[in-house]
Amino acid sequence: MTEGNFVDYVKMYVCSGNGGKGSVHLHREKYITKGGPDGGDGGRGGHVIVRGKANLWTLLHLKFKRHTRAGHGEHGSSGRSSGADGEDVYIDVPLGTVIRDTETNQILFEITEDGEERILAEGGKGGLGNWHFKSSTNQTPRYAQPGIPLEEKYVTMELKVLADVGLVGFPNAGKSTLLSVITSAKPKIADYEFTTLKPNLGIVKYRDFQTFVMADIPGIIEGAAEGKGLGHYFLRHIERNSILLFLIPADAKDIKKQYDILLDELRRYNPEMLDKERIIAISKSDLLDDELQAELKKELDNELPIPYLFISSVAQKGIKELKDLLWKMLNN
């Protein structure tokens, strides 16, 4: 999927259908001059329903479909005939989509399972026909219920990528290169900051045909929690990852300090992110000779509070060990 085809934020107007009116009808037939009330009920208005689809990865298909309307219920008729229900309209979304009320910013619901269906705008109930209102004291009621009106609202759909492992790091730390090596994904790779502007997903093949999903998130900069750089645009994608893989280049001036800055940005955006399992990969370690790596390892053993390992995407160094460690953490 090309970068321009990844859409993770869409605003829409949705409108359900009106309920049909109940019928006011008195039965008339040859030789039956006073057959009594027989007006049928109105049909239900159509719902607007959001449905989860596991084979969707983006909201691209909704980008230019900003208005969605369901069908109106038909009116009741004679002979106690009910009107037809209005046609329901389905909006298919990828798993991990959050639906908010645009005006209040309140979260209405989240779609996280394949085939999950939630009513976004409920169709109006059809009105009752006049035969419901007959009684011993009112045998020919000449009134019926109107249908309940439609429901309309403006909603915002946000996709938070569902992945097992999320790559976290500063711009140009080698995240896209790692994703291209460890999966079949083909992200854009270049030697300037913010090459990645949209999340990239890749499937990591493990032993015995087992797989897990890895997400390359655009680089974090200091102040991202306040909206600097790409700010909240990509931080929300990290919320759904099971494991956070911090990628810090071996030529960084202070590896521990970089890790602390990244962790602090996550904490300020959403403190719950610190509950996730974390691991550090020291990338571009092909720049280090054995002596330098041993010296750095001794230093990091005392400084880093979580597991770490040295990798090089270009030299394919430590990639197998990284897969093993990630798989072990995911299955614990």
Rank of each mutant, 00 (worst) to 15 (best):
I99H: 04
R268D: 08
C15I: 09
A190V: 00
I221V: 15
N130T: 00
K153W: 03
G174H: 00
E272N: 06
L235F: 12
L159V: 13
G219W: 04
E87T: 09
G115N: 06
K298W: 07
R236C: 09
V24K: 10
D301Y: 13
H232K: 15
L62A: 05
S82I: 07
P305I: 09
V161M: 10
Y206V: 13
R118L: 08
G166D: 01
F170D: 00
I111Q: 00
F6T: 12
K320H: 06
I203N: 02
P141S: 11
G22E: 03
K30E: 15
R80I: 12
L274P: 13
K323V: 03
L62M: 03
N331A: 08
A225I: 05
N270G: 06
G231N: 08
A215S: 07
G174N: 02
P199N: 02
A173V: 02
N270W: 12
G126D: 10
P218E: 05
T195G: 02
S77V: 03
S283V: 06
L296Y: 04
P271G: 03
K228E: 02
K11W: 10
I107V: 13
L266Y: 01
H232T: 15
Q293G: 13
I189N: 00
L108D: 02
S78Y: 00
N5H: 11
D290A: 15
G223H: 09
E291S: 14
L288N: 08
F310P: 01
T156D: 07
F212S: 04
T104V: 07
F194L: 08
S312K: 07
P307C: 14
S16W: 06
G231V: 12
V314G: 12
G202W: 04
L59Q: 03
L274Q: 12
D8M: 09
G129R: 00
K21F: 14
L59G: 01
L162G: 05
G36C: 12
P187Q: 01
G147P: 10
N200T: 06
R207Q: 14
L95R: 06
L108C: 02
Q210I: 11
D251H: 02
R142C: 05
I248E: 00
L95A: 09
D251E: 04
L262W: 08
S176E: 09
P218M: 13
E110R: 15
N200D: 05
G71K: 00
L26F: 13
R44W: 14
D260G: 15
A224Y: 11
R267M: 09
L230V: 06
L197Q: 02
P271Y: 01
T68W: 05
D208L: 15
T137V: 15
T183S: 08
Y31M: 15
D88L: 03
G73R: 05
K323P: 00
F209G: 14
A225L: 05
R240Y: 13
D324Y: 02
S176V: 13
K320P: 01
A250N: 06
V24C: 08
I311Q: 04
D38H: 11
A315T: 04
E272M: 03
A144V: 00
I255R: 09
L325Y: 07
A250G: 06
W131M: 07
V93Y: 06
G43A: 07
V155P: 04
M12F: 12
